[in-house]
Simulated assay, not measured.
Amino acid sequence: MTTQALIYLFVGASFALYIGIAIASRASSTSEFYVAGGHVHPVVNGMATAADWMSAASFISMAGLIAFLGYDGSVYLMGWTGGYVMLALLLAPYLRQFGQFTVPDFIGTRYYSNAARVVAVICLIFISFTYIAGQMRGVGIVFSRFLDVPVDLGVIIGMGIVFVYAVLGGMKGITYTQVAQYCVLIFAYMVPAFFISFLVTGNPVPQLGLGSQVADGSGMYVLQKLDATLTDLGFTAYTDGSKSMIDIFAITAALMIGTAGLPHVIVRFFTVPSARDARKSAGWALVFIALLYTTGSAVGAFARINFVDTVNEQSYAEAPDWFTNWEANDLIAFNDRNGDGVM
């Protein structure tokens, strides 16, 4: 069986699993459709919340940001993770305590104002459309790469699948579908991470591999190797930060507040039985997300080393297959400034 056939099989099985779960757990009441009946276990809700957050930005872009920004990329880890701490302490328990179905309902009830409710609806729509635009682009890129289809068709496929299981199951179906999604996503992320960690350092655990020596006989540690390689090529050292303290503070604060205010994340805390469970589910979400985030920083460093080792001084005509595939999807480009045909 070819690699492409295996990809089709894996993706098709995943879709069938999601739709099957949505059908099996379809909502039978308004409460189940909007808030899964309000009786989701904190661990389950934490896993579903983690799947909510492990979207295109985290799953596709985070390791890439860290790989090419180096130390400066750590601000995204701090901001996004800190947002969940803010959620757990300041928002989640109070949202659940009011027992409303949506954030605008909560705001309208809390402030006794229909005007505030309307403003919340407008903000919700604006945020949702802005966020979905980026997510759908990410979906299109993933499907275009793995299913060998145009990006536009990839977006349509992704939207169709989400529409089916969201309409069939409501929040109840989405919750248990997202638990399955988390398992699939973390498996798909961790397996390559284990392999690239072993390839670069000889240690299959990415978090430990990041602090290990590179398996090339140089005796250098991963970050030392990265710093030396990048400075030799004329780039800034990987561990050198270029952002000022005020920049780091401002970006971290913006990411924290943005994370805490995401509508599809906030609504997850309406699905647990109590305010205490809302706090617990936020804590569990952090645990499940940490598995991805601690791996992502390591993958970013390994990927940068592997990328340089693979393409540096390589003839463009002999570029690896993955390079030409990504180039075809506008994910990478080669600009031959000196005209020698060597990357």
Rank of each mutant, 00 (worst) to 15 (best):
M1Q: 10
Q4S: 15
I7L: 13
A13Q: 08
A13D: 14
S14I: 03
F15K: 00
L17F: 03
A22Y: 02
S29V: 10
S29K: 13
Y34A: 09
A36K: 02
G46D: 02
G46M: 00
T49A: 14
A50T: 02
W53E: 00
F59H: 01
G64H: 04
L65T: 05
D72A: 01
V75D: 04
G82W: 13
M86E: 05
M86Q: 07
L87D: 00
A88K: 01
L89A: 14
L90G: 11
L95Y: 06
R96K: 13
R96I: 06
Q100V: 10
Q100P: 05
D105T: 05
G108P: 02
T109W: 02
R110W: 13
R110C: 04
N114E: 09
N114V: 11
V118Q: 06
V119G: 03
C123L: 15
L124V: 01
F126N: 12
F129M: 03
T130Q: 00
A133L: 01
A133Y: 01
G134A: 10
Q135A: 13
V139Y: 00
G140W: 03
F143H: 12
S144Q: 07
R145D: 09
F146M: 15
L147V: 07
D148M: 07
P150M: 07
L153W: 13
L153D: 07
G154S: 11
V155R: 01
F163P: 10
L168G: 01
L168C: 01
K172T: 07
K172P: 09
G173M: 04
I174E: 06
T175H: 07
Q181K: 12
Q181D: 02
C183T: 15
C183S: 12
I186A: 02
Y189A: 14
A193I: 12
A193F: 12
F194I: 13
F195H: 13
S197A: 14
F198V: 03
V200Q: 09
V200Y: 10
T201S: 12
G202P: 08
V205I: 15
V205W: 04
P206L: 07
G211W: 11
S212E: 09
G217D: 14
G217K: 04
S218T: 09
L226D: 03
T229Q: 12
T229N: 10
L230F: 07
D232R: 15
G234H: 05
T236N: 10
A237I: 00
Y238D: 13
T239G: 10
D240E: 12
D240M: 05
S242N: 08
M245I: 14
M245A: 11
F249C: 07
I257M: 09
I257W: 14
A260V: 03
G261T: 02
L262M: 15
L262P: 01
H264N: 08
V267M: 15
F269W: 07
T271C: 01
P273I: 05
S274V: 03
S274K: 08
D277R: 12
A278K: 05
S281D: 04
G283N: 10
A285F: 12
L286E: 02
F288Q: 10
I289T: 15
A290M: 04
L292G: 12
Y293I: 05
T294A: 09
T295I: 09
T295G: 12
T295L: 09
V299C: 03
F302C: 06
R304N: 11
V311W: 02
E313N: 15
Q314G: 11
S315T: 09
E318N: 08
P320N: 10
W322C: 02
G339R: 06
V342D: 02
